[in-house]
Write a protein that binds this DNA or RNA. Sequence first.
DNA 1: CCTTAGTCCTGCATGC
DNA 2: TGCATGCAGGACTAAG
Length: 268
Amino acid sequence: MPELPEVETIVRQLQPAVTGKTIRELTIYWPRTVEGDHDAFRHMTRDQVIRSISRRGKYICVHLANEHIITIHLRMTGKLVFETDEKDKPYIRAVFQFSDGSYLYFVDIRKFGRIKPWFPGHPLLPQLGPEPLDSDIIYRVLSASGSVRAIKTLLLDQTVLAGVGNIYADEALFQAGIHPAARANKVAKKRLRQLSRCLPEILKKAIAHHGTTISDYRTVTREQGENQFHLKVYGRTGLPCPHCHTAIHRITLNNRSSHFCPECQVKR
DNA sequence: CCTTAGTCCTGCATGC
DNA sequence: TGCATGCAGGACTAAG
């Protein structure tokens, strides 16, 4: 499940690799993968030079020379890869062909991923909170919310902070010693500060490790990330807490699993 | 304002 | 072995 570090890894690889390339053709194999009118999309991308690639939250933005932008969200199982293997073949949903004969494949087992054309004058992305890479900004956003929602719910809300998903929310809450179900407005200022410091650290470390591969995530060159070897609580139900050796618990919060140490993480 | 459940999808683990 | 069931969850939507 690509979150900010995985998307950032992909964008950093794509940026030097496809900038300057010209899109010759976009082929769509699963219609719902591409939002909006397909003919208009093909028309606006045809023979367009890619100016740059950027990231906003979990979105990849492809900036074209004609001022149009393609936004790509990988959701759960989406990948962007330069080459495919036999296993990928049934799950290729769209293919960009470049004028130099190279390709960029959008492979997505579960078909949740979306490619969306943006036309000038339209809203580019849904409402998104700030990037969670600066502790002062995170602290400001979290303490100002005054929300009664669970702190974990707040972290996953893309309108509050853009880019945090289930893995890094659990990891950051563990590092900060905060119970995922703690009411956001009840968390001590001190711990909120700790969380605000931990979150960017964890995300930056994950970027340095090229992301977390649990099952489907791969880089553009099909490599796995290495951050899965550094997780402390996510997916470690029943295993000992790295701090106190208590078994890690798993609870369901807003229909999502949360992993935490019942000893180290407190509700306020 | 907030929560819950449903939707989209497929693969995989589990249980009988 | 085969079949049914449930689980995984990012973003969105409808209903309460």
